[in-house]
Amino acid sequence: MTSEKPSASTTVEYIRYHIPEKRSAEFLAAYTRAAPLLAASPHCVDYELARCEEDFAHFVLRVTWTSTEDHLEGFRTSDLFPAFLAETRPYVGDIEEMRHYKPTSVRGEGSAVPTLYEWAGGAEALARLTEACYAKVLADDLLAPVFADLGPEYAEHVALWLAEVFGGPATYSATLGGHGHMVAQHVGRGITEPQRRRWVNLVQDAADEAGLPTDAEFRSAFLACVEWGTRLAVRFSGPDAKPPTDQAVPKWGWGVMPPHRG
């Protein structure tokens, strides 16, 4: 399960075609041949050719570029473009619109795509996860010294944080603080890379023990979040590290990175 969103720095190109029915098969074949050239461009984020259900003669090509300049001055001046144009040139006269669009802040996901929080099993599943994880942590020789002074409520707080990060209730922010509060819990702890890796392994074992979903899509998003969070913890646990300014808890989705790094 994936959910791709253009970032504020990308641009989306739309090319609208009107292709007579008798030429639609050759048009689709041409774009099937041209598509790998788009995919090979380092300036192309993704692309999709869609066909109108109400009128089969209408097609829309959507290409997300790293920027308008990268499209016009990068892809179009690259060695890939002549071959791409050779395939698509016969249909230039059929173009009704070809423009670049910048994404706005008005975007989101519908309820047809479950959040990671819902897919994981909600609050109860995340509570089982953190309880299992911190039982393992406290019994681990490498990690126990780092977490020995934390009370039993710490596992509950982490469950609330994960719930919010994964698209669930914003209870962590409402009762404990935002992203900066979570980061501040690691300041001065001097977490090492071996300790970080051990925690990553233990939380994955805990996910199995807690019965979290085992599908590749969920576990991939879950592990990506764990890797991001633990690397942030190491960074802010070092000497002279300062917690970030007040920030909202990041939202993690299917294949979507959080909006800020620290």
Score class of each variant (00 low, 15 high):
Met1Thr: 07
Thr2Met: 06
Thr2Phe: 12
Glu4Ala: 13
Lys5Ile: 15
Pro6Val: 11
Ala8Glu: 13
Thr10Ala: 11
Thr11Ser: 12
Val12Tyr: 01
Glu13Ser: 05
Arg16Ile: 15
Glu21Phe: 13
Lys22Pro: 04
Arg23Cys: 01
Arg23Asp: 05
Phe27Gly: 00
Ala30Asp: 01
Ala30Leu: 10
Tyr31Ser: 06
Ala35Val: 11
Ala40Thr: 06
Ser41Met: 02
Pro42Lys: 02
Cys44Lys: 06
Asp46Tyr: 11
Leu49His: 01
Phe56Leu: 07
Phe59Arg: 08
Val60Pro: 07
Val63Thr: 01
Trp65Ala: 08
Thr66Asn: 02
Thr66Pro: 00
Ser67Val: 12
Thr68Cys: 07
Asp70Lys: 00
His71Trp: 05
Phe75Gln: 04
Ala86Cys: 13
Val92Ile: 06
Val92Ser: 08
Asp94Arg: 10
Glu97Asp: 04
Met98His: 01
Arg99Val: 13
Lys102Trp: 12
Ser105Val: 15
Val106Gly: 08
Arg107Val: 14
Gly108Pro: 02
Glu109Leu: 11
Tyr117Leu: 13
Glu124Ala: 14
Glu124Phe: 11
Glu124Val: 09
Ala127Asp: 14
Ala127Met: 12
Arg128Ala: 13
Leu129Thr: 08
Thr130Pro: 03
Ala132Thr: 04
Ala135Trp: 09
Val137Arg: 03
Val137Met: 04
Asp141Arg: 10
Leu142Val: 14
Asp149His: 09
Ala155Met: 00
Ala155Asp: 07
Leu160His: 04
Trp161Ala: 13
Leu162Trp: 03
Ala163Ile: 05
Glu164Asn: 00
Val165Gln: 03
Pro169Leu: 00
Ala174Tyr: 12
Ala174Trp: 13
Thr175His: 09
Gly177Ile: 14
Gly178Pro: 06
Gly188Ile: 04
Gly188Leu: 07
Arg189His: 09
Gly190Trp: 08
Glu193Gly: 04
Pro194Val: 02
Arg196His: 09
Arg196Asn: 11
Arg197Asn: 07
Arg197Asp: 04
Arg198Val: 15
Trp199Ala: 11
Val200Ser: 06
Val200Arg: 08
Asn201Met: 15
Leu202Tyr: 03
Ala206Trp: 04
Glu209Gln: 00
Ala210His: 00
Ala210Ile: 08
Gly211Ser: 06
Gly211Arg: 14
Leu212Gly: 02
Thr214Trp: 09
Asp215His: 11
Ala216Pro: 07
Glu217Ala: 15
Phe218Tyr: 02
Arg219Glu: 01
Phe222Leu: 02
Leu223Asp: 06
Arg231Pro: 09
Val234Pro: 06
Arg235Trp: 02
Arg235Tyr: 04
Asp240Ala: 14
Asp240Trp: 11
Lys242Leu: 13
Asp246Asn: 10
Ala248Pro: 14
Pro250Ile: 06
Lys251Ser: 14
Gly253Leu: 06
Gly253Lys: 11
Gly255Trp: 01
Met257Ile: 14
Arg261Ala: 15
